[in-house]
Design a protein around this nucleic acid. Sequence first.
DNA 1: ATAACTGTCCTACTGTCATATGACAGTAGG
DNA 2: CCTACTGTCATATGACAGTAGGACAGTTAT
Lengths: 138, 138
Amino acid sequence: MLFQINFKSAKPVYLQLVDQVKSAAAAGLLRAGDALPSIRPLSEELRVNRNTVAKAYTQLEAEGIIESQQGRGCFVRVPQSALRKDARRRLLVTGVDEVVVQAHHLQFSRSDLMTLVEERFDALAARQTSYAQKQGTS
Amino acid sequence: MLFQINFKSAKPVYLQLVDQVKSAAAAGLLRAGDALPSIRPLSEELRVNRNTVAKAYTQLEAEGIIESQQGRGCFVRVPQSALRKDARRRLLVTGVDEVVVQAHHLQFSRSDLMTLVEERFDALAARQTSYAQKQGTS
DNA sequence: ATAACTGTCCTACTGTCATATGACAGTAGG
DNA sequence: CCTACTGTCATATGACAGTAGGACAGTTAT
């Protein structure tokens, strides 16, 4: 089971799926060219409506993470953002600022936060390399 | 004008207000004991319904950021989370993971990300100290 | 051609967001 | 006391987001 949904979460189901696909792609569990689970089987496995999965895939296509081909399936795209460095940076700053404010209210010091970010980044990178070893890197 | 609303944003108005109050509190623009703008005047200034502001304040009270007293007003609480360190950490990890994945898709390296986080943290801290100097620190 | 798969579109139900309005309750100052 | 402020609650309404089911359209293999 690659993906799983938390129905108690306040976050919409389709956005949970979007995040999980992104995360899997970032961790190397899904690599460029790989086919995603097709909509209907996945919707059954997750106990969710087809259109909910379809909506997640539409969103992912809009963000340039995947590409969908009618009648064939959906596929992971090679990671390349069309945006310039400063535009991408601006996007990231928004998320970073939220985390920084949250860290403050949760009474985390600067070094606490830095350590945590390093740790989580490395955790992601670790998943990446362990998977690459199993599969063989191209 | 402490707060301002972006009506074009996808984020609900009341959540924009919640974030801005949190941010102001984290930056020291609002300090423990300070009164928040009262609901009706603020709603007029922001061109928003009273209930929308009230909803934001209710949310902030639920999160322990402010305290509201009927007939008196709403006040910033002393920052203290009732949660244990590991519970607070778990909350923060969620946000950090999202940023880490986002950073990956925006093609930011580990050091790029670390630098950015440091930068944004210091930017927040700088607002804090500059305000403290103007007002005098207690 | 047909069957079985793939994604896509349309329509409808449900809940959330925001607005508007009226009424009520606690607090402070004249 | 009375007035003017404060927050709170209930209801109604319109717009939109999330989810769901039926019908449609493209692809592949037999």
